[in-house]
Design a protein around this nucleic acid. Sequence first.
DNA 1: TTACTATATAAGAATGATTCTTGTTCAGCA
DNA 2: TGCTGAACAAGAATCATTCTTATATAGTAA
Lengths: 150, 150
Amino acid sequence: MMSKTSKELLEQFRIQCKARGLSITPQRTAIYEALIGSEDHPRTEDIYNRVKAAFPDMSIDTVYRTLCLFAEIGFVRLVEGYGEAKRYDPDMECHHHFRCMRCGRILDFKEPRFDALEVPQQFKQTCAVSSIKVVLEGVCEQCLQKSVEP
Amino acid sequence: MMSKTSKELLEQFRIQCKARGLSITPQRTAIYEALIGSEDHPRTEDIYNRVKAAFPDMSIDTVYRTLCLFAEIGFVRLVEGYGEAKRYDPDMECHHHFRCMRCGRILDFKEPRFDALEVPQQFKQTCAVSSIKVVLEGVCEQCLQKSVEP
DNA sequence: TTACTATATAAGAATGATTCTTGTTCAGCA
DNA sequence: TGCTGAACAAGAATCATTCTTATATAGTAA
């Protein structure tokens, strides 16, 4: 999924932190590593659980703060959702989402035709548009099967 | 914004309720009316506040339950968001959203070119896709101005 | 109209996600 | 190597939402 190796990403992470005057702490590094190893659009608590093995007494508040910070400075993206817990996406390249409205699963997909969409004139002139993406809503394969079986 | 009059919508609301065996209570009617009069993608609490004038002792739990029910049966849509409180959209016609990542404002827009997007083959075959829409993220006009002024 | 019953509601407790507060620790620099 | 502001841990507090329970009422059947 990632086009850069995790080594390259980590190096970039360090450079970006320094450039912004942010301390490179073991916690932040661990959280960043957990993120780039995730393909499931994890919630804060998921990252917390993955990091806890190495940092048994990390506070979940640190994970909340750090993910929020990472989203602000562009290390990850906050995923569009429907009012449940926030989820993050480490893939910063242009891509799109299918969201299962039953189980919450998010599937990434690439679609060159969608990447080429142009921002409508009305927003181009007045707003700063940073992203344009397509969101599919529906029911995923697994959930469809479940509703047939039982 | 609405293509149907609120009278037509209310009539449709009653018919749909009956068809589904749902009681037509004053609370539900008031919540529905508040919804179709809203163009700001209100949160549950917003609707609660708007309805409270007429129903001083309505429970906010009723608003939560009712909005959830309305979304399930297709009277309104749950709007894609970023982990804050759920927001609802009474416009059931195909349209798209611009979301200000600073103030949370959501702007509706119509764009025929976006309405014609086709669901990628991979999802067509395996999932039930109920909606395909374009989401713009960025900073709105008002917020851009604010960041210049002070 | 009236009585009945399942559904809907109000009130408040409970839960889950997130943020805040406070005192402590540590990364990065002098 | 010591200093200082930034970062952290712990737990309290807050906000959104759901659950529980007892009561009220919409729709129906008599």
